[in-house]
Computed example of a mutant assay.
Amino acid sequence: MRRVRWHTTLALSAMWAAGAVQAQTPSTGHWTDAAAAQAAPAPVATATSKSAPRVELELRARFGGTEAIALNHLAGPVEVTLQAEGAPPIATPALPARATVPAGGRVVVANLRDEAAGTRLSLLAVPGLPVARVRHVEYLYPLRDAPLQIAQGYGGGFSHADAENRHAVDFAVTPGTPVLAARDGVVMQVEADATARLDPRATVDPADDRVRGNFIRILHDDGTMALYAHLQQAGVVVAPGARALRGTIIGFSGNTGLSTAPHLHFVVQANRGMRLESLPFRMLGPDGPLRFGQVQTDPAPAAP
């Protein structure tokens, strides 16, 4: 899977104003939806989106200034950074300002002085808390009744060379195969509206959520997260906030997103301070423990 920085440039390129600005949150990307209407004449706040909003930047007028509030609509925590383009405005704390926002929560990231009117702001968001303490558990092979066929393993040169995907595994599998939760956790985020794969020859921003197609992100109790990507249309059978138990069906494999062949992209990640890193993991396969570091990848593995 190509680099998709959950570094969500929640690219809330927001002009100074009171109101809510919608922005993407699982991966970096610019959004194109308009912000909420303003109660009084003020610069327009705009943002862009390629799917449903996951995080909002709300600018709320207060005496002597404006509160910049991060609203998290995900069923898991995120870390955010508020920054300004050009010279930073007078703010408390000073920009760039960082904060963590709990699942379904809202946090005032900074208070800005009125003199900052006209400043362009951007909000960066990364899923998970930067305090994950990884527990070394054995993951379950995430496919039911499917033979083991690895299209790309750890460090695959095709698309597993970046920090977020270095320890990802692409399992080649027939579309419609049941996908199982490899570990207990809370469903943090789902996407199920992708209808087909993207043309791999097209120029696509790797930070665009669409590269993953339909996917499920599950938060584990140690703060790590598992991503199951490229599921089929309507191939998600769990809802955000639900608890997924190891071995239960959470979706069905497919070929959506930026993919050249049907496969399941599986990776375990942790937030290491406004950046995602993939983590090596142990997994029990159909015939015993798997060793992904020793797996030979195909010369032309499935793209993410």
Rank of each mutant, 00 (worst) to 15 (best):
V4T: 06
V4C: 13
V4M: 03
W6Y: 10
T8Y: 02
A11V: 03
L12W: 03
L12V: 08
L12P: 04
S13N: 08
A14G: 01
W16F: 08
A17F: 00
G19I: 00
G19V: 05
A20V: 05
Q22C: 09
Q22H: 11
Q24N: 13
T28L: 08
G29S: 14
A34P: 04
A37R: 12
A37V: 12
V44Y: 00
A47N: 06
T48Y: 06
S49R: 09
K50I: 07
V55N: 04
E56L: 05
L57S: 07
L59T: 01
R60I: 03
G64E: 13
G65A: 12
T66Y: 02
E67G: 11
H73Y: 06
H73C: 10
L74E: 05
G76R: 01
G76P: 00
E79Y: 05
L82T: 07
A84F: 06
E85N: 10
A87W: 05
A87G: 09
A87Q: 08
P89T: 05
T92N: 15
A94E: 09
A99Y: 08
P102L: 07
V107Y: 13
L112Y: 01
R113K: 13
D114H: 02
D114G: 15
A116Y: 03
T119W: 05
S122E: 06
S122T: 12
L123E: 09
L124N: 06
G128F: 08
P130T: 08
V131Q: 10
V134Y: 12
V134F: 07
R135K: 15
H136L: 12
E138S: 11
L143A: 10
D145H: 15
P147D: 06
Q149P: 15
A151L: 14
G157L: 14
F158Q: 07
S159A: 12
H160R: 07
E164P: 02
E164K: 02
N165V: 04
R166Y: 08
V169N: 04
F171W: 07
A172E: 14
A172M: 15
T177L: 02
G185D: 03
G185Y: 01
V187N: 02
Q189D: 02
E191N: 11
L198D: 10
V204E: 06
D205N: 14
D205S: 10
A207H: 14
D208H: 04
F215H: 01
F215P: 02
I216L: 01
G223A: 10
A226G: 02
L227Q: 04
A229N: 02
H230K: 05
A234E: 15
A234Q: 15
A239C: 11
P240M: 04
R243D: 09
L245E: 13
R246Q: 07
G247L: 03
T248H: 13
G251M: 00
T260Y: 09
H263P: 03
F266I: 00
V267E: 01
N271A: 07
G273V: 10
S278L: 03
P280R: 08
P286V: 09
D287K: 12
D287N: 13
P289F: 13
Q296G: 15
T297Y: 09
A302V: 15
